[in-house]
């Protein structure tokens, strides 16, 4: 694995290898051995053009736990704010010897460009690009699902995952549909028709406009963040109507199967797509998702930077 740009890049074996590696790395970390040595002397650059707390910190923690040197490069307070192009920034990082670049960018496809335009030679990890993809989020979601529903082993065959909310603008949804299908899960997307992409009928998933009709049979419900400013663009009338039709509240949660879990990639709009009671309930695995994110990102960096199990 040279880059991780899209969840579509991951075949079944690749995905299982990442999840199994993440499991081993998580176990090693829990044993309290401190930093693991495999990436000593390697440099990982976190190149973040968008504000992000959890993803940047998660990647930073992952790289440091593998003993890599980490450079954080944020668009604010750098030459990017003076108008430097992505190309020139990339050339600079290349000259400084970056072995891998973790990029978050508001332009869909920017990681793809960074990896393929001939600007740099190191590996590229997509940490979220525009409204395109967020493959490590999908990996940590799969890891979390596997831990809860498949005892932390194998794939997700037969698991029913319902993803609810702003699919149109969601890189999390795109990556999850691809990866969860690869792992054998069945995905259902639930959203108002305005927040579904054109051509959704060609995606490998079910689509529904009705959350209430979609709860039964779901093994997991993943709520997507809905930005309040979307209502100004007439995607829905107002926050209250959105919340009443597509928000996950306690009444809806109680209709889920006993074993079903509730997920959210964060940051949450409590009271909008998810009620506070649901977010803080026993069903919620949201905090666990964050912890798993570090393990999964350790696995990705390890495999991309020439870990011994890499192909």
């Amino acid at each position: 694995m040279k880059h991780l740009l899209s969840a579509a890049d991951l075949g079944y074996d690749d995905a299982i290898l990442i999840l199994d590696t993440a499991k081993q790395l998580a176990a090693a970390t829990e044993q309290g051995v401190g930093k693991l040595p495999p990436l000593r002397g390697r440099t990982v650059v976190n190149l973040f053009y968008e504000d992000s707390t959890r993803t940047r910190i998660s990647f930073e923690a992952a790289a440091k736990r593998l003993s890599a040197d980490v450079i954080n490069f944020s668009a604010k307070g750098s030459s990017v704010s003076k108008g430097e192009s992505l190309k020139d920034t990339a050339l600079t990082l290349e000259a400084m010897g970056a072995d891998a670049v973790v990029i978050r960018h508001n332009s869909s496809g920017a990681p793809h460009r960074l990896a393929n335009a001939g600007w740099i030679s190191g590996g590229v990890v997509n940490a979220g690009d525009g409204t395109h993809e967020h493959p490590t989020q999908a990996l940590l979601d799969a890891f979390t699902l596997r831990n809860h529903l498949r005892n932390g082993d194998g794939d997700l065959k037969g698991v029913n995952v319902t993803i609810v909310g702003d699919v149109l603008h969601s890189r999390v949804a795109r990556s999850n549909v691809l990866l969860l299908n690869t792992l054998g899960a069945k995905v259902r997307l639930v959203a108002p028709p305005t927040l579904l992409p054109y051509g959704i009928e060609d995606w490998d998933c079910e689509v529904s406009y009705d959350l209430d009709a979609s709860l039964e049979g779901s093994d997991a419900v993943m709520m997507l963040r809905v930005q309040r400013e979307r209502m100004n663009a007439a995607y829905f009338p107002n926050a209250h109507e959105y919340s009443s039709r597509y928000g996950l509240n306690v009444t809806r949660m109680n209709r889920l199967a006993e074993s079903a879990i509730v997920m959210h990639p964060g940051p949450m709009n409590r009271g909008m797509e998810i009620s506070a009671d649901v977010a803080d309930s026993d069903r919620s695995v949201i905090v666990e998702q964050v912890a798993n994110g570090v393990s999964v990102r350790m696995a990705v960096l390890y495999l991309i930077l020439g870990g011994s199990e890499s192909k």
Binding site: E133, R171, P197, Y198, G199, D202, W203
Partner: peptide, 18 residues
Amino acid sequence: AQMNEGVVSGKLGLAGWP
């Protein structure tokens, strides 16, 4: 808008030009 609105734009996450 960034590209034709269709199956490809949905997949690539680029705003569509219908």
